[in-house]
Structures are given as C-alpha cells and as structure tokens.
Design a protein around this nucleic acid. Sequence first.
DNA 1: TACACCATATGACAATAATCATAGCGCAGG
DNA 2: CCTGCGCTATGATTATTGTCATATGGTGTA
Lengths: 200, 200
Amino acid sequence: MIGIDTLLAWGATYKKVTAGETIFSERQQCIFYHQLAGGSVRWVDINDEGKEFIHDFIQPGECFGEFPLFDDSPYASSAIANENSVVIRLHKSSFLQLLKEEPEIHFEFDKMLTQRLRFKFLLLKELACADSEHRISILIDYFKQSKKNICPKCNQIKLTRQQIADMTGLRVETVIRSMRHLHEKGEIKILKGKVYCKAI
Amino acid sequence: MIGIDTLLAWGATYKKVTAGETIFSERQQCIFYHQLAGGSVRWVDINDEGKEFIHDFIQPGECFGEFPLFDDSPYASSAIANENSVVIRLHKSSFLQLLKEEPEIHFEFDKMLTQRLRFKFLLLKELACADSEHRISILIDYFKQSKKNICPKCNQIKLTRQQIADMTGLRVETVIRSMRHLHEKGEIKILKGKVYCKAI
DNA sequence: TACACCATATGACAATAATCATAGCGCAGG
DNA sequence: CCTGCGCTATGATTATTGTCATATGGTGTA
C-alpha cells in the first residue's frame, strides 16, 4: 500500500513473526499500522463454536487491521501468520500524521478501503443469496481478479478445500462435491486433486 | 456526515426524489457525492433472478454511493428512495477538493467507511456461518445499536418480514417462523404481528 | 361499514447442505 | 522406497430451509 521507504522514513520498524503466530486478536487495542513485507497472513474471525471464518488472505504489500486506526475501537478480528512472515509496523500517531501531510497517500488509502468494501458487498450478496457452487465460483473469480493465491504460470488455485470452506461458510464435503460438479461443467479443472482455473 | 452548511458553501444542491425512484443504479458512472437530507433510501443489489438484496437503509445525515468517488469504478449497487426524499449532491471534483482542504472531515469520512466495513465483516461472518435465527438476531442488534428503523419510544422494529428477509438472504416464511421462535424464547416480542425488541 | 390490499401466518412437501463414517490418494521425511 | 499424515473423496442419513398453496388479520379508503 504505502511505499516501504516512506514508512521507514516515518519511523516504521520490521517485525518477524513465525508460522501460526497471532499478530493481533479480536477485542485487543490497536497501536500500530501493519503492512505485510513478506510471507502470508490470514484475516480471521473465530466464532462462538470455535469455527474459523477467513475474511481474506493478505499478500506482501497489503496492509491489514486498519479499522481501529480510524474509529478508535478495538480490533474486529484476528490476524494469524500462515507462514514465517515479516511485518512493517508504524505507530498509530505517526501513521495518522503521515496521512495528514500526504493527501495523495490518504486518497490511495481510501481507494483501498473502498475496494475492500466492494468485495465485502459482493461476497455478502452472494453468500446470502446464492447456492454453494455459485459461492465458490464468486470466490475463485475474486482471487483471479486480485491475482491472489493463484499461480500466475499454471493457474493453480493454491487453497485447500478447507480454506475455501472457511471463506464461504460451507463444509469441506460440500466444497469438495460442488467443486467436482464445477469440474464436470467445465468451469474449473481438477487434476490429481489440484484445482486449476481457466486462463484469465 | 458532512455539515450541510459546508456542503452548500462548496456548491452542493438539493434534489427531490419521489418514492420508488432510483437515484443511481449499478454499473452507472458516478458524478456526485450524495447525502440524504430527508426521507429514506435503501441500498440494494438486484441479482440475476431479479431478487433484491438490501445492503442497508440510509437515514437523513448519512451519505451513500461513495465507492466510485475514490476508485473511479462504476456503482456496485443501486439506491432507491423508500419514500419522498431530499438528497444533497456535490460534484465529485468539489467533494475531493473539500476532503483535501479539510483533513478533519477526511478523517471523519474514513471513520464512516471503517464502520461500514466493520458492519459488513460482522454480517458476512454471521450470514456465512450462523443459522436463520442467529442471522435475524444479529441484524436486530445492529439496528438497535445504530438506532435505525426502531421506534425510540416503543422499541418497535419498523421493518417488514420481507425487508428482513431481503437483508439476510432468507425467505419471508423462514423469517416469520424464526421470529415466532425468537418470540417464544423471549428474545423479542410480537404483538398483533408487530415486532418489538427488548429495551436497549 | 364494508371492501380491498398487503403483511403475516401455517401446513405439506421438496431440495439442499450438514453430519458422520470410512476409504483412498499424494507428498514429505526418514 | 516405505511410512505416515493430511487432504481429498464418497455414501448414507439427518436437519434445515425453500417452495407452494392457502388462510387469517390489520389498516386505510370508498
């Protein structure tokens, strides 16, 4: 999101996190702006029954956990490292000052917030109204568009059925069956269990 | 959101819309910042089968259709007047200039975007994971918190079962049955078909 | 007051997804 | 090259919600 040089100039520091480590969690107070420098982070909610709902996967360059920077409430969900990762952190007050002095970056930030809202709007409508196959298609389309979790060379979708289930609210078995059906309809391709989407 | 005086000083104008009128619709290009001055507007998506999914009800003072102001894409959904209403409109370019010159308002705006994202995050998790009763409870809680569509004196929920269905992706019959059950469990009160929630 | 219209209500049945159990496959590590 | 673990796969059964048909009730209007 924000250039690394800019962040460092404003006093940001690097922090290493190990696979499975929780970077921040629900209801916790917020002190830092977070941006991923390397690795992979997932953005999750744990519901009352202990089931994970995955909101998104964060890629290097993207920021995460930005809600409390603006509305002073605690975090709404948790961020967990999928693998060993590196995070750049900037103190909340410095971050807000940065936005104030750099309106261009501020507007870029709004653009990012807006795009996240757009995606949530779309997904919400689909999750609420559509059947399981449709839900999965929509999610794959999103990953295709955002070039997330898809191998740029071979179009392989680098997500397990379980992860897709955790993003759509479906069960693994339902995801497996629906994806088989999508394969039969020719919308995706399954080879030795691996899923490939059509060329972009 | 933004003070009416400020908007008018920047060249905003009033526009009357009649009940049922579409203020803007999906895929349309965006020229104005919109803020509701009076009446009520619903924010909807029409899916492929012609079914409405209601994202939110806009109250006087709230803005709507703000996505395209930041990312230059067309509207993601439509805005339809529920009743005769009055909208204040400001040209996109003036609006962006206003934000640039008034960082306080800009941060207020981010706060609002953030709160909308928070609500979407919450609802998405619940719609994806929870059963019909839980979905309805969550929605009622949201209205209670935001003081929307609830009579401040008698706690009556001023939404039809159909509207609740259109916000949760359920069917009217399911909403009716689930709400009866919530009534039996004592979580809400139904008197002569009207729904009342517990005191806030 | 009577009528019409719209929202609420309810039952019977069908469709879809969840649950549970169990099997098979593929890849990493010894 | 074998072993084990985690992911994928599939069948049988249950539970939930959708669908359709039809009835009741409340509110505003002629």
